[in-house]
């Protein structure tokens, strides 16, 4: 017991973790401070550094007044909520599904699920842009031959949905695989006890699986929410934010203002700061609830 304590405590932890902390401080804190500084300035792309002007909070006031920024905020929220919720629900169903399969099918499904995650997102976006083509795309081809349905995926009504579908396609595998291995880890006895009690599978899911999986669910949600908030490449190659601004997520808004055809680096930085604050608050909320679990776990 004594030695174990010794193993656990050791003498000095500094040499073990200090290098990584120094590296992280250098490569993340410095740019972040710089970002804050930029956000207080008015400075345009490809003009000399000396032409910047300190304007304090003007950029932030402009942001809040800007219709397109407000719109981006709403679109981002919609995107994150829908995408994460559906990925979670589908992930849960698919995970339960894999669990019910024989070993051969399990491997087949796991392999099938791993593949979308390895595909470069920008390529996935382009491929899906062609799949969603209202006239010549495969999606409408299947829809119309199976259900006689033709949807204009490029229209303002469906463009956002089409980008969400791509995210769901690419990242539901992530949620299902993690939830699946979470379910595997939950002791089989719990299930059998429930089965004997004659509980329906829905009851098993809500009363047993989900509570036992809570830590896993939290980490899945955390990772997916953060990634969905950051989404850029897929939407960029699919719609470039259009039509109108129906698919203009915050990260696209930053890009449009900071680079693209405008080049207001200061303004763009201020939006980036807002996004950063948003991400930090959300992740803190999730991490706290997640941390509370971990403490309980001991």
């Amino acid at each position: 017991m004594d030695t174990i304590k010794k193993v656990k405590r050791g003498k000095s932890v500094t040499p073990w973790i200090a290098p990584s902390i120094i590296v992280l401080l250098l490569i993340t804190i410095l740019p972040t401070l710089f970002l804050f500084y930029l956000s207080l300035n008015s400075w345009e792309l490809a003009t000399p550094w000396d032409t910047r002007k300190l304007v304090w909070l003007k950029n932030f006031i402009d942001d809040i007044k800007d219709e397109q920024f407000q719109n981006s905020l709403v679109v981002t929220m919609k995107y994150v909520v829908v995408v994460v919720l559906l990925e979670f629900v589908f992930g849960l169903i698919i995970a339960a599904f894999i669990k019910g399969q024989n070993p051969g099918m399990r491997i087949f499904m796991i392999v099938a699920l791993i593949l979308p995650m390895t595909l470069t997102p920008s390529v996935a976006g382009l491929i899906w842009r062609s799949n969603f083509h209202p006239v010549a795309g495969v999606v409408n081809y299947f829809l119309s031959s199976l259900f006689g349905l033709k949807i204009n995926w490029y229209s303002k009504e469906y463009a956002l949905l089409s980008t969400m579908i791509v995210d769901i396609w690419q990242w539901t595998p992530f949620t299902s695989l993690i939830l699946f291995s979470g379910m595997e880890a939950v002791s089989q006895d719990c299930y059998e006890a429930a089965m004997i009690d004659g509980a329906s599978s829905f009851k098993v899911l809500t009363r047993i699986t989900i509570p036992l999986l809570k830590p896993v669910i939290l980490i899945v949600l955390l990772m997916r929410i953060m990634d969905a908030l950051k989404m850029f490449d897929v939407v960029f190659v699919m719609t470039e934010g259009g039509p109108g601004n129906t698919t203009e997520l915050l990260s696209l808004n930053i890009y449009r203002i900071g680079f693209f055809h405008t080049g207001y680096l200061g303004r763009a930085s201020s939006i980036a700061v807002i996004l950063l604050i948003l991400v930090t608050i959300l992740s803190q909320i999730l991490i706290r609830s997640f941390g509370a679990r971990e403490e309980g776990k001991g």
Partner: peptide
């Protein structure tokens, strides 16, 4: 890990 790429690309 959660910092959005777009936020750190500028700096």
């Amino acid at each position: 890990r959660m910092a959005p790429a777009m936020a750190v690309i500028l700096p």
